[in-house]
């Protein structure tokens, strides 16, 4: 029974463990290879979970694994909002 960890991109705990086995041992790489954390919620729900899985599996501390940088905007906004603004 494998548990979904990233609901937006449909990634399971097993997918994460497989990626680590293949040598992708950092959050940065796992995010790029599996796209977890890149969905509409931008990883707010899944990255903490994935961080814990990586830490447990690689024997690193949570701080060492830490989270990849978030990229703005912090809340999704429609393009028209930006199109309407003055410089």
């Amino acid at each position: 029974m494998t548990e979904i960890v990233c609901r937006c991109e449909d990634i399971t705990e097993e997918d994460i463990l497989d990626a680590i086995d293949q040598g992708y041992t950092t959050l940065e790489e796992i995010k790029r290879v599996l796209r977890c954390g890149m969905g509409p919620c931008q990883g707010r729900t899944c990255i903490p979970l994935i961080t814990r899985i990586v830490a447990r599996k690689t024997g690193k501390s949570l701080a060492e694994v830490s989270r990849p940088t978030t990229r703005p905007p912090l809340q999704p906004l429609p393009l028209s909002v930006f199109a309407g603004e003055e410089e």
Binding site: P72, L77, P78, L79, V81, F82
Partner: peptide, 28 residues
């Protein structure tokens, strides 16, 4: 990442494809 880019990009895209004005930007 800059707000200047976001505004220039939004204006240019929305002029070419007005329907994209509704699209939410997830990240830049």
């Amino acid at each position: 990442a800059s707000l200047r880019f976001m505004k220039r990009m939004a204006r240019t895209v929305v002029e070419l494809v007005p329907a994209f004005g509704h699209l939410n930007v997830l990240r830049q």
